[in-house]
Amino acid sequence: MIKTLQKSTWVYLFTGLMLVLLPFFKDERWFLFLMIQIFVFGIFAMSYDLLLGYTGIVSFGHAMFFGVGAYSVAITLDRFEPSFMSLLLGIVIAMAVGGLIAFIAGILTLRLKSHYYAMLTLALANLFLVLAEKWRSLTKGNDGFTFQIPELPGGLEDHRNMVIYLFCLVSMVVIFFGLKRLTESPLGKILVAIRENEQRVVSLGYKIMPYKVIISVISGVVASFAGVLYAISIRFVDTSVFAIDMTLDALLMTIIGGVGTLVGPIIGAGIIEFAHHYLSELSDVHWIFERWIILFGILYILVVIFFPSGIVGTINHKLATRKQRKKEDEQSDKLAS
């Protein structure tokens, strides 16, 4: 069993273990919080990459899944007593609603050109934003609301941030390996084939629609779960979870980190979150840092044009060509001798 694990899996497990130990050395609140954000957005960006990188579907409304997840768990915990049962209920509701929305959006537009899914999700996300602003009795509008999360048993309550940190980390690692398994399964191979050449997949006898709908539902469910973690980690929810900025963040993380890989989005999430943190401190130095969206936007455009496969993709590509070259060298050496 252990022998069959890939070398990369060991690297991932080792990194995960390091991250588990990290808060025992550096447990300032802001740092833990930043790391939690990275895990949450790492999950969110991975779910995004399932669509963009693996299947070639562009969604501009991914924030709606995130927001639905955040609001579902927040409202459940707010309405019922903050116990683990209502937390579980909230998570189940979040994932069910997220999956349902993804299903509806999918069957409506995935048979059409990629533009349609992008436009429909953008419009739907906007609808949810308006809904969250207007339905004040449920969402408390623009102000948002705070809520209690279940109390932890015994001495763990004093280390609540640490527990949330570990919970988010474990969730991310589990989802990472789950999705890795998914993308390496026959289903994942068909998705990549659809991305590369739809016509050919059709002529091989596959129906494309079910696969696309399945992956959009999975992606929606995972994104809702990221929203749940986000709400739990800050114990507050407002309409900003539905904003286009959320989708943009996922997009940036995926594109910069590397589309079509699962590590890429996590690395992207790390870079973007740290950049957010340090750039907002720099705003005293120069006003341009207050408008950091411009910097990110320009960076993003440049990456789309010049490095369409992102950091991880570019590194992988370099490694592959080097290996190839080495092989060729060896072969030519053999031929020469």
Binding site: V58, S114, I294
Partner: peptide, 20 residues
């Protein structure tokens, strides 16, 4: 197509931030 959609959305954000 996919790159077009991605890049024009990015430019949209740059345009509206540049207004500010």
């Amino acid at each position: 197509h996919i790159q077009q959609i991605l890049i024009t959305l990015g430019f949209m954000l740059v345009l509206s931030e540049f207004i500010k």
